[in-house]
Nucleic acid binder design. Structure first.
Length: 419
RNA sequence: GUGGGUGUAGCUCAGGAGGUAGAGCACCAGGUUGUGGCCCUGGAAGUCGCGGGUUCAAAUCCCGUCACUCACCCCA
């Protein structure tokens, strides 16, 4: 038997309704806030991700599905969506009419990690991006939208964490004082952190090894070395969130795994998913549009882990599927042919209908009608047909009426809709 | 990539100091001649994840492998 690829999954009926509900809720909310949908390809040239996410990141170093196509071009299954959206924004000069643009997109991403709870090799994200707004009000709006979405989906065990990563003005100074501090506690850091200390010292802040956490107690906070403008923007963000009643915690150790982030970063965390506690994350990436060859336009955005969000919502929360309006039970060959025509006509008329196409006893067809929770059953029997009528049974009351074959579909429709 | 746990019918699981398998639910058919939900009877369904080894004999022991799962790691 051929099985699906490791870390990939099927979303089957029963679960997919929840996904539809989440998607519908998110899309409505984003549209209300002026975001437009953008659909981008699932593959890009590898270079796009290497340059945007960063050569030294784990994603680019060891998690991407990269392969040469038949002509030898290096392609990669997208590990995230922002790079593609930025590429599209630049390529189609979407900034030309108005640099301020808001986009959202929903789709699968691919990262070859060891599968785990809330972590799949193909996983889905809902992304939202705001281009052309320098003010931290844009960041505040994104966090507000996230908080609203979770509230609408009745997800309660979540918390917003925010931090500022500074900008090219002030981050170098911070990195320097951080490096100085880290080399002082070098012996107490794990092997990974010692490696990070040189390549990407910010990542040490995010280490989960207890000894490291201890060693960096009292580490200088980037929030203390922000330049005046970064500081001002962070204040704007905090004030806006307070006025919007969005609770948050400042997490000065919150660092993003992608290189393009600057200033505001945030993560929505939950206590319900074990180690994979980030349900959504994002932040500002002011330099990325320019890095990828576009004009110097600021931008900010977020990504929601669709799979993780779905796991936070109890299956019972999903509305039950529509119950069946009518089940058509036919007895005998001739009846079945007619019943088939009528059931198709009923479906066309917007009545949710089901029939048994096999040659089965009335008893088993009734059982089936019951399983579908049909409100009515239309019994098409040879005896009644001879008299030009069929039986309509109300499953709840057990009332049965004879309906003439003439205008049957219309008659059934009014009966069904009237009850 | 590293470590732990798990892998028996569609689903949830039992069994197993070695002698080729069970339950509940679901499914199908009956319980008199054309009517559901309860109940009763019967039936179908598994190469006991896959491959190899030990053995007269393996679902049961050993090795490998794959998958799932949790943690590390990483992030959404």
């Amino acid at each position: 038997m051929i099985q699906l690829i490791r870390g990939f999954k099927d979303i089957l009926p029963g679960e997919v309704e929840l996904w539809q509900k989440i998607e519908k809720t998110a899309v409505e909310l984003l549209e209300d806030f002026g975001f437009k949908e953008i659909r981008i390809p699932i593959m890009e040239r590898t270079e796009l991700f290497a340059r945007s996410i960063g050569e030294d990141t784990d994603i680019v170093e060891k998690e991407m599905y990269t392969f040469p196509d038949r002509k030898g071009d290096l392609l990669t299954l997208r590990p995230e969506a922002t790079a593609s959206i930025v590429r599209s924004y630049i390529q189609h000069k979407l900034y030309a009419q108005d640099p301020v643009r808001k986009f959202y997109t929903i789709g699968p991403m691919f990262r070859r990690e060891r599968p785990q709870k809330g972590r799949y090799r193909q996983f889905y994200q809902i992304n939202a991006e705001i281009f052309g707004v320098d003010s931290a009000l844009a960041d505040a709006q994104l966090i507000f939208i996230l908080a609203t979405l979770f509230a609408r989906l009745a997800v309660t065990d979540v918390q917003s964490h925010i931090n500022s990563l500074g900008c090219p003005e002030c981050r170098p100074d911070f990195k320097e004082s951080l490096s100085k501090f880290l080399s002082g506690v070098k012996e107490r850091l794990c092997a990974d952190c010692n490696r990070r200390q040189i390549r990407n010292p910010l990542r040490v802040l995010d280490c989960k090894v207890p000894a490291c956490k201890e060693a960096i107690e009292g580490v200088p906070s980037i929030l203390d070395s922000l330049c005046p403008e970064c500081h001002r923007q962070f204040e704007i963000l905090k004030n806006a969130l307070e006025r919007l009643d969005v609770p948050y915690v400042i997490d000065k150790r919150l660092v993003r795994g992608l290189d393009y982030y600057s200033r505001a970063t945030f993560e929505i965390k939950t206590g319900l998913l074990g180690a994979q506690d980030a349900v959504a994350g994002g932040g500002r990436y002011d330099g990325l549009v320019k890095t990828l060859g576009g004009p110097d336009i600021p931008a900010t955005g977020f990504a929601i882990g669709f799979d993780r969000l779905a796991e936070l919502i109890a299956v019972s929360e999903v509305d039950d599927a529509r119950t069946l309006d009518i089940f058509v039970a036919a007895l005998g060959e001739k009846s079945r042919a007619l019943a088939f025509e009528w059931s198709c006509a009923l479906g066309l008329a917007g009545i949710q209908v089901e029939m048994d196409m096999g040659d089965r006893s009335l008893k088993s067809q009734m059982k089936r009608a019951n399983k579908f929770a049909a409100k009515h059953t239309l019994i098409v029997g040879e005896k009644e047909l001879e008299q030009g009528s069929v039986i309509l049974r109300n499953m709840a009351t057990k009332d049965q009426v004879l309906l003439p074959i003439e205008n049957l579909v219309e008659n059934v429709k009014t009966k069904v809709e009237g009850s």
